[in-house]
Amino acid sequence: MKKGLLTAAGLCIFLAVTPMAVAGQDNYGCGLGSMVIENNESLVSQTFAATLNGCFANQLFGMSSGTSNCDRPDSIVYNEKINTFVADNMDNLAADIAKGQGEYLDTLATLMEVPSEQRPVLYSALQNNFSAIYPSSQVNHTDVLRNIEAVM
Protein backbone atom coordinates (compact mmCIF):
# COMPACT_ATOMS: atom_id res chain seq x y z
CA MET A 1 0.00 0.00 0.00
CA LYS A 2 2.67 2.45 1.06
CA LYS A 3 4.77 1.59 -1.94
CA GLY A 4 1.81 2.30 -4.21
CA LEU A 5 1.29 5.69 -2.67
CA LEU A 6 4.94 6.58 -3.00
CA THR A 7 4.93 5.56 -6.63
CA ALA A 8 1.86 7.67 -7.24
CA ALA A 9 3.40 10.65 -5.49
CA GLY A 10 6.63 10.21 -7.43
CA LEU A 11 4.74 10.00 -10.68
CA CYS A 12 2.85 13.19 -9.83
CA ILE A 13 6.03 15.09 -9.18
CA PHE A 14 7.56 13.72 -12.34
CA LEU A 15 4.53 14.73 -14.38
CA ALA A 16 4.47 18.09 -12.69
CA VAL A 17 8.00 18.84 -13.78
CA THR A 18 7.57 17.66 -17.36
CA PRO A 19 5.38 20.50 -18.64
CA MET A 20 7.94 23.00 -17.47
CA ALA A 21 10.60 21.32 -19.55
CA VAL A 22 8.28 21.34 -22.52
CA ALA A 23 7.50 24.98 -21.90
CA GLY A 24 11.21 25.70 -21.95
CA GLN A 25 11.59 24.08 -25.34
CA ASP A 26 8.79 26.24 -26.67
CA ASN A 27 10.84 29.24 -25.71
CA TYR A 28 8.17 30.67 -23.44
CA GLY A 29 10.40 32.15 -20.81
CA CYS A 30 9.68 35.31 -18.98
CA GLY A 31 10.63 37.65 -21.78
CA LEU A 32 8.47 39.44 -24.27
CA GLY A 33 5.90 37.26 -25.95
CA SER A 34 5.43 34.93 -23.01
CA MET A 35 1.72 35.56 -22.64
CA VAL A 36 -0.93 33.00 -23.30
CA ILE A 37 -1.66 32.68 -26.96
CA GLU A 38 -4.49 31.22 -28.87
CA ASN A 39 -4.61 27.65 -30.06
CA ASN A 40 -5.07 27.12 -33.73
CA GLU A 41 -8.01 24.84 -33.28
CA SER A 42 -10.90 24.41 -35.62
CA LEU A 43 -13.65 26.98 -35.46
CA VAL A 44 -16.06 24.53 -33.89
CA SER A 45 -13.80 23.44 -31.09
CA GLN A 46 -12.76 27.05 -30.54
CA THR A 47 -16.40 27.91 -30.31
CA PHE A 48 -17.08 25.35 -27.68
CA ALA A 49 -13.80 25.90 -25.92
CA ALA A 50 -14.79 29.50 -25.46
CA THR A 51 -18.26 28.48 -24.47
CA LEU A 52 -17.20 26.15 -21.74
CA ASN A 53 -14.45 28.53 -20.85
CA GLY A 54 -12.42 25.43 -21.34
CA CYS A 55 -9.13 26.05 -19.78
CA PHE A 56 -7.53 23.79 -17.30
CA ALA A 57 -8.50 24.90 -13.88
CA ASN A 58 -5.63 26.25 -11.89
CA GLN A 59 -4.66 25.92 -8.32
CA LEU A 60 -7.25 27.66 -6.23
CA PHE A 61 -5.10 29.07 -3.46
CA GLY A 62 -1.54 29.55 -4.61
CA MET A 63 -0.98 33.25 -4.82
CA SER A 64 2.46 33.25 -3.35
CA SER A 65 3.94 30.56 -5.57
CA GLY A 66 6.01 33.16 -7.38
CA THR A 67 7.70 32.76 -10.70
CA SER A 68 8.81 29.20 -10.20
CA ASN A 69 10.44 28.86 -13.60
CA CYS A 70 12.13 32.23 -13.83
CA ASP A 71 15.28 33.63 -12.30
CA ARG A 72 15.00 36.10 -9.48
CA PRO A 73 16.89 39.35 -9.61
CA ASP A 74 19.57 39.59 -7.00
CA SER A 75 18.55 43.11 -6.04
CA ILE A 76 16.74 43.20 -2.75
CA VAL A 77 14.68 46.16 -3.87
CA TYR A 78 12.33 43.84 -5.68
CA ASN A 79 10.06 41.57 -3.81
CA GLU A 80 8.41 38.48 -5.16
CA LYS A 81 5.18 40.27 -5.98
CA ILE A 82 6.93 42.75 -8.25
CA ASN A 83 8.85 39.93 -9.89
CA THR A 84 5.75 37.94 -10.59
CA PHE A 85 3.86 40.93 -11.89
CA VAL A 86 6.62 42.03 -14.27
CA ALA A 87 7.27 38.50 -15.49
CA ASP A 88 3.59 37.87 -16.15
CA ASN A 89 2.93 41.22 -17.84
CA MET A 90 6.09 41.86 -19.84
CA ASP A 91 4.36 42.90 -23.06
CA ASN A 92 1.66 45.13 -21.61
CA LEU A 93 4.12 46.78 -19.24
CA ALA A 94 6.54 47.52 -22.11
CA ALA A 95 3.71 49.19 -24.04
CA ASP A 96 2.77 51.32 -21.02
CA ILE A 97 6.38 52.39 -20.45
CA ALA A 98 6.69 53.37 -24.12
CA LYS A 99 3.50 55.45 -23.85
CA GLY A 100 4.42 56.92 -20.48
CA GLN A 101 1.10 55.94 -18.96
CA GLY A 102 -1.29 53.08 -18.35
CA GLU A 103 -2.76 50.66 -15.87
CA TYR A 104 0.23 48.29 -15.88
CA LEU A 105 2.60 51.15 -15.14
CA ASP A 106 0.31 52.34 -12.35
CA THR A 107 0.29 48.87 -10.85
CA LEU A 108 4.08 48.64 -10.99
CA ALA A 109 4.34 52.01 -9.24
CA THR A 110 1.86 50.81 -6.60
CA LEU A 111 3.91 47.70 -5.99
CA MET A 112 7.09 49.77 -5.76
CA GLU A 113 5.25 52.05 -3.32
CA VAL A 114 5.96 55.18 -5.32
CA PRO A 115 3.73 58.00 -4.00
CA SER A 116 1.32 59.32 -6.59
CA GLU A 117 2.88 62.81 -6.74
CA GLN A 118 6.22 61.27 -7.79
CA ARG A 119 4.76 59.10 -10.50
CA PRO A 120 4.70 61.59 -13.42
CA VAL A 121 8.45 62.09 -13.01
CA LEU A 122 9.06 58.36 -12.78
CA TYR A 123 6.89 57.59 -15.81
CA SER A 124 8.59 60.16 -17.92
CA ALA A 125 12.04 58.94 -16.84
CA LEU A 126 11.10 55.37 -17.74
CA GLN A 127 9.68 56.46 -21.09
CA ASN A 128 12.80 58.46 -21.96
CA ASN A 129 14.94 55.44 -21.12
CA PHE A 130 12.84 52.84 -22.88
CA SER A 131 15.76 51.65 -25.01
CA ALA A 132 17.93 51.29 -21.92
CA ILE A 133 15.26 49.26 -20.13
CA TYR A 134 14.51 47.11 -23.15
CA PRO A 135 17.91 47.03 -24.91
CA SER A 136 17.04 43.99 -27.02
CA SER A 137 14.13 41.76 -27.85
CA GLN A 138 15.67 38.98 -25.76
CA VAL A 139 15.38 40.97 -22.56
CA ASN A 140 13.77 39.07 -19.67
CA HIS A 141 11.94 40.33 -16.64
CA THR A 142 15.03 40.23 -14.43
CA ASP A 143 16.91 42.51 -16.84
CA VAL A 144 13.92 44.82 -17.03
CA LEU A 145 13.76 45.16 -13.27
CA ARG A 146 17.50 45.80 -12.98
CA ASN A 147 17.30 48.39 -15.74
CA ILE A 148 14.33 50.10 -14.15
CA GLU A 149 16.23 50.25 -10.90
CA ALA A 150 19.19 51.83 -12.70
CA VAL A 151 16.93 54.53 -14.20
CA MET A 152 15.31 55.41 -10.89
Partner: peptide, 20 residues
Protein backbone atom coordinates in the same frame (compact mmCIF):
# COMPACT_ATOMS: atom_id res chain seq x y z
CA UNK B 1 7.78 34.80 -31.54
CA UNK B 2 11.20 36.03 -32.77
CA UNK B 3 9.67 38.40 -35.31
CA UNK B 4 7.11 39.51 -32.77
CA UNK B 5 9.52 40.42 -29.97
CA UNK B 6 11.90 42.21 -32.35
CA UNK B 7 9.19 44.23 -34.06
CA UNK B 8 7.19 44.92 -30.91
CA UNK B 9 10.26 46.28 -29.16
CA UNK B 10 11.40 48.45 -32.05
CA UNK B 11 7.94 50.04 -32.53
CA UNK B 12 7.68 50.75 -28.81
CA UNK B 13 11.17 52.24 -28.81
CA UNK B 14 10.08 54.63 -31.58
CA UNK B 15 6.89 55.38 -29.66
CA UNK B 16 8.80 56.19 -26.45
CA UNK B 17 10.48 59.16 -28.12
CA UNK B 18 7.13 60.88 -28.75
CA UNK B 19 6.27 61.64 -25.15
CA UNK B 20 2.99 61.10 -23.43
Amino acid sequence: VETYTERYRSVLAARSSLGK
